[in-house]
């Protein structure tokens, strides 16, 4: 589904990703962990087409297409979803209007008729229940005045609405209370199908207790320095990153 090969990215001339390779097959859940500033969000930005980061080398293929050549909205319409680490507020734009446009744009892209107003509202209602989001939130402007946790839940709600093939969740767990964490995780699990995949960026094992990853990667200083099964997350939780950093340094010396 997604093939990243030797991806190098720099921001304002500073090299941030230094050769990342990652292969995601349909139905897989990948977790990416790594210390602050290691480049996780940058990777997510590049995958969704945010332009401040410059790709200097490498390829990204998504379902057989060169992803890097696609516009952000085409990527979205082709099924890539990003749950932002810091969702932005858009005053005056109602959630309903926002989502309706997004859903119908996607339908148009796939040759479907737009949803009728009543079908759309029905869908909203269902998905709201799915992610247990307060229905009042959906009546407000996009993220405006939402608490940190509410913003994150709202991202999951949008994911549910858009039914992506590849969802990238950038620290969607941070700022969530315990119940919300469970809700988010359940939301993800309910959306999980045989053919859709997730990349979950997180710092904590607790999310991975609910969303069981197939693979865990550690991104460190712009490189994936370790890839293993779900037990890696536990090990990181227990030991922190120092041992990995040491391993990396030793490798360099060796």
């Amino acid at each position: 589904m997604l093939d990243i090969n030797n991806l190098k990215v720099s921001i304002a001339g500073k090299s941030i990703l230094k050769g990342v390779s990652l292969h995601v097959k349909p139905g897989e859940i990948h977790a990416i962990m790594g210390p602050n500033g290691s480049g996780k969000s940058t990777l997510a930005s590049v995958l969704t087409g945010r332009e401040f980061a410059e790709v200097t080398e490498g390829t990204v293929t998504y379902m057989g297409n060169n992803l890097l050549e696609m516009s952000p909205e085409d990527r979205a319409k082709e099924g890539i979803f990003l749950g932002f680490q810091y969702p932005i507020e858009i005053p005056g734009v109602s959630m309903v209007n926002f989502m309706k446009t997004a859903v119908n744009e996607k339908r148009k892209h796939h040759g479907l008729d737009p949803l009728s107003a009543s079908d759309f509202l029905k869908m909203m209602r269902e998905k709201k229940e799915l992610v247990e989001i307060d229905s009042k939130l959906a009546n407000r402007s996009v993220n405006e005045g939402f608490s940190g946790g509410e913003k994150k839940k709202n991202e999951i709600f949008q994911m549910a609405m858009l039914e992506p093939k590849l969802a990238i969740l950038d620290e969607t767990d941070s700022g969530l209370d315990i119940d919300a964490l469970r809700i988010v995780a359940n939301g993800v699990n309910k959306l999980k199908k045989a053919d859709n995949s997730f990349i979950v960026i997180t710092h904590y094992q607790r999310l991975l207790d609910h969303i069981i990853p197939d693979v865990v990667h550690v991104l460190y200083d712009g490189r994936i320095v370790k890839t293993a099964g779900k037990e890696l997350a536990l090990e990181l939780e227990a030991k922190g990153y120092d041992w990995i950093k040491k391993e990396v340094e030793n490798n360099v010396i060796a």
């Binding site: 087409g49 516009s71 952000p72 909205e73």
Partner: peptide
């Protein structure tokens, strides 16, 4: 804001 909309598939 534009990018956020783009990411949701809105031109």
């Amino acid at each position: 804001q534009i990018f956020y909309c783009n990411q949701r598939g809105i031109s």
